[in-house]
Design a protein around this nucleic acid. Structure first.
Lengths: 194, 194
DNA sequence: CCTACCGATCGGTAGG
DNA sequence: CCTACCGATCGGTAGG
């Protein structure tokens, strides 16, 4: 019984991981259940012993990584300067993108294929998330820590720049993850400092 | 005869424009020729009197906007400081994203669905494009106009941030295009200045 | 986990 | 520009 459960969940994990890799490469709509099954080495019909539907796979990938991001922001040290907070956010997202490359990419590029209910949930979660970071930037401006740039643009640029690391990953890694992170901070925080 | 040609090409334009809108919303793989035909008000089979294949539509959308970007960079005033050049590039891309919203979005998000030959062409064109901008950043660093941030990261961040404007467009436009452009420059150039 | 199969839909063609 | 249609493939189910 315990063995069965363990087996099942590890198989499900394998499906999710393989699906994330394929969704990132060919997109959600461009990946068929037969492609996915073949990569895993089973028949397409057998996938349904572990998952309920194709859309469930997408949901699990996206909401799992979204939860990690949300929790990190909620548990952020409320002490510290706005600059420290934004810097730690840039470092966190850069690490997430690099360490959870496949699922992070799927989240930022394939969320629009969630079905209606889950799509609404994701969009409103993301809006809340962006608003929270915007308010940190706004505090920094009010504090005179930052120059007066629209917080909305700053947050958009930071999150978009992290997304752009997908392209770095795909090519030969001429720079280490640490150097990339350091330069992300330098460029994106630099444009904020007075 | 002239009338026929005019009619044909305007119909093709309508197909390309409608396709760009749909590819951006649902992705290339998620858009069917029947969806596209219905939006235009004809039968799917009739599309093929104006275009040869679905992939040809994607190619025309992507390479048309890619050409605009390439030409702008090639025709850039070689005088001026590195700072002026990078600033003008940020302004140009921001304007392109806003003015040619649909096709620019399709280029940056759907290029991986080009078929093998065109994909190779696009990737090597883009690599050349990025390298050229990197060398402008490098000159600025050598000049002591810019602080020493990895040019590769700077270019990635600029182009990714412009891409992120897709998300701005979709929501209510609380800020004008001019204000967005100004803030893009402030934040992204700001992180570069000494 | 498989075989066998479902109805729906895909990109595209023939022929008018 | 349409009707009629092609073979291939889609997500998913039944039954073992």
């Amino acid at each position: 019984m315990a063995t069965t459960t363990r087996k099942r969940s590890s198989k499900k994990e394998e499906i999710l991981k393989t699906a994330a890799r394929m969704f990132r490469e060919k997109g959600y709509a461009g990946t068929s259940m037969r492609d996915l099954a073949e990569k895993i080495g089973i028949e397409a019909a057998s996938l349904y012993n572990h998952i309920h539907s194709k859309s469930e796979i997408l949901e699990e990938i996206i909401f799992s990584i979204a939860r990690d991001c949300r929790e990190q922001l909620d548990n952020m040290d409320p002490a510290g300067t706005s600059l420290q907070k934004i810097e730690s956010l840039i470092r966190f997202h850069t690490k997430m993108m690099i360490d959870h490359f496949e699922s992070y990419s799927v989240m930022v590029s394939e969320w629009m294929h969630l079905d209606e209910e889950k799509l609404g949930e994701f969009v409103s979660e993301r809006r809340r998330y962006v608003k929270k970071i915007e308010s940190i930037v706004q505090q920094g401006i009010d504090n005179k820590e930052f120059k007066p740039v629209l917080p909305y643009v700053v947050v958009l640029n930071i999150l978009s720049s992290v997304r752009g690391l997908e392209f770095w990953q795909k090519s030969a890694k001429t720079h280490s993850a640490e150097i990339m992170e350091e330069n992300m901070v330098q460029h994106l925080i630099g444009g904020l400092k007075l």
